[in-house]
Design a protein around this nucleic acid. Structure first.
Lengths: 125, 125
DNA sequence: ACCTCCCTTCGATATTCATCTAATAGCGAG
DNA sequence: CTCGCTATTAGATGAATATCGAAGGGAGGT
């Protein structure tokens, strides 16, 4: 899975918003964006991100996530992995423990996609 | 479904980001956010929003959405309705046609949730 | 060596949901 | 009123996935 969201180009001349940017392959961009949104579109995973976003550098283990969510460790691990695969979380290993922390850049970039800034002087077709 | 995202309070004193804001019921907030993200977490629906976000005031009918996505009108209608239920799209009826357009505020608000702005002077527990 | 955590994987189950076809409903035109 | 176009609903199906319990694996401590 690519690490970049090709849609977000805040410097390019634009008619409108990042998500409305004209692209070579809008369907591919949509798939790209939807895939990342899907990784976050779950109450348990939003809850994890909430917790990690509270303070800079906060970390969380599988066991802690399980306790926080009230689910089994297997389930908690599943959610952490999904967030990691989307590039939103990154792991840090210390001995037998694995600490997960936020990738703030990835989260911000995903949010930027939704920051629509339409204007009247649009030169779409 | 409530029309507001209680999480986003850009004026309140904060330790970190909107999503990390301390709340009475973080789980409820997470559910709230996840529900809206889920409405957008689909390639077809992102594609629709892309198209509508291109130019201010752009509108789309069920038939047009079906043609754009290459799916049946029933499926297109399903996606439009899901986006509408999430408050992202709003309908405008004209005779027998129904034109859907973006609710820019709702989209921006959802994006704002992900604009994490952590700082070192955090006073979390 | 053994025991104990912690993390991860596996297989199963139940639910959600994207999609289709077919049918129904609404509105305008002739 | 009937025809045609648009929108919507209903029911069915297949795929994705959230969840669990159980089992496996790795690293430290005693």
């Amino acid at each position: 899975m690519p690490r970049t969201l090709p849609i977000v180009n805040t410097t390019a001349p634009m008619c409108c918003s990042p998500i409305g940017e004209h692209s070579e392959d809008p369907a591919a961009d949509a798939l790209q964006i939807a895939t990342r949104l899907k990784a976050l579109a779950d109450p348990s995973r939003v809850r994890i991100v909430q917790e990690l976003a509270c303070c800079e550098g906060h970390e969380m283990t599988t066991t802690e996530a399980g306790a926080l969510l009230g689910v089994s460790e297997a389930t908690a691990n599943h959610h952490l992995k999904r967030l990691q695969q989307a590039g939103i979380l990154a792991p840090r290993r210390d001995a037998q423990k694995v600490y997960y922390h936020l990738d703030l850049g990835a989260l911000r970039q995903l949010g930027a996609v939704l920051q629509v800034r339409c204007s009247a002087n649009c030169h779409c077709s």
